[in-house]
Write a protein that binds this DNA or RNA. Structure first.
Lengths: 188, 188
DNA sequence: GTATAACTAACAAACGTTAGTATGTAATTG
DNA sequence: CAATTACATACTAACGTTTGTTAGTTATAC
């Protein structure tokens, strides 16, 4: 593996526990058993780590969304695919996902604004998918924001408890979450 | 209002935007138009702010839970009360809730462990309420953790979008969220 | 005259980062 | 094949700032 990749991976693990600001370059260096100054042979600065991580994941989510929107699946199937893709991206990048979800606010401009607009694009995409599904086209308009964020929050919460090596397989995870979200907890 | 309370309120607002570590004592002081050293006439140190904030809210949640558990409501009503109480605590403390939700990891021992155990107690309480509700007693055991965290995540997400002065009233908010969670998004 | 609440000045430590240098290994050249 | 160049990776030392905090002092109010 690239040395730069190793630095990213080490950093992300540390930042998951202590946050972006709370993780110093010396912490990262120490995690790799080198000196802080040595890191600068491979990255331009601390913010590289956060920026790269956030946009790598953001791009994965947006790519997934665009594929779904362009597909000719039926609306309800699109929703299932959306959930499945979202879960798989999270599960495939557990540490990175945590930093992505909770540390993006420390991005500096213009990255900060760019990130927010991508997040908005993603939320609007989910909104589009929900609206196209006629089985629930009786939402009030003011409810959509709520529904979209509720769904995304439940999905993103996976990162807090899911153990990739545990007994629950990813497909199973997607199925249960789809049921919970679409049919409610009473139908599980 | 107490000067100490003013400091807390100013700090929490700043920490919501820049995080606990990213907010310096000088930032806080500047927000109150005084010098950093003056803060120490009213608080013992920076961590006071985080600790007090986190446990003030944690206690509110635990108190709410215990009241519900001791009540003689029917299980489904208990769930509704749980949701309603949770939402009301969040909405009544929007800024504080954000710091509570996302900055608690910077607590130092023994506060960190205490906080985690209180969070666990709260999650177990919701689990108890869900289990007592016979209308969904067909959960698999491994699903409870998922359901509990999904529900709490959806509720906590309120803090990200809800405007207390907007058009959606709190009661309405509780009703819609209850429906989404219990009956799923297809039934809204 | 005792609190309350502010100030200035300073502290040691930690921060991100730069400069300059050493070392080994791979690639290029005579 | 041997000599030389280039690159990757690490180092020590230091920089200017910012950090949380303490000490000691001053002004206002009941």
């Amino acid at each position: 593996m690239n040395r730069r990749e190793q630095i990213f991976q080490t950093s992300i693990k540390l930042m998951k526990n202590k946050g972006y600001v709370g993780t110093s370059m010396r912490d990262i260096a120490s995690g790799m058993s080198i000196e802080a100054a040595s890191l600068y042979n491979h990255i331009k600065g601390k913010e590289d780590i956060l920026t790269d991580n956030c946009f790598e994941l953001a791009n994965k989510f947006i790519d997934s969304l665009n594929t779904i929107l362009k597909s000719d699946e039926k609306p309800l199937d699109k929703l299932h695919t959306f959930i499945s893709n979202h879960v798989n991206i999270l599960v495939g990048n557990m540490d990175a996902a945590h930093v992505f979800l909770y540390e993006w606010k420390h991005l500096s401009e213009p990255h900060y604004s760019k990130f927010l607009s991508m997040r908005d694009e993603y939320e609007q995409g989910l909104r589009r998918i929900l609206k196209d599904d006629e089985s629930n086209n009786n939402f009030e308009n003011s409810s959509y924001k709520m529904v979209v964020i509720s769904v995304l929050s439940s999905l993103n919460a996976i990162e807090q408890w899911y153990k990739p090596d545990g007994e629950i397989k990813v497909e199973e995870l997607c199925n249960i979450l789809s049921k919970i979200l679409i049919n409610g907890i009473k139908e599980l």
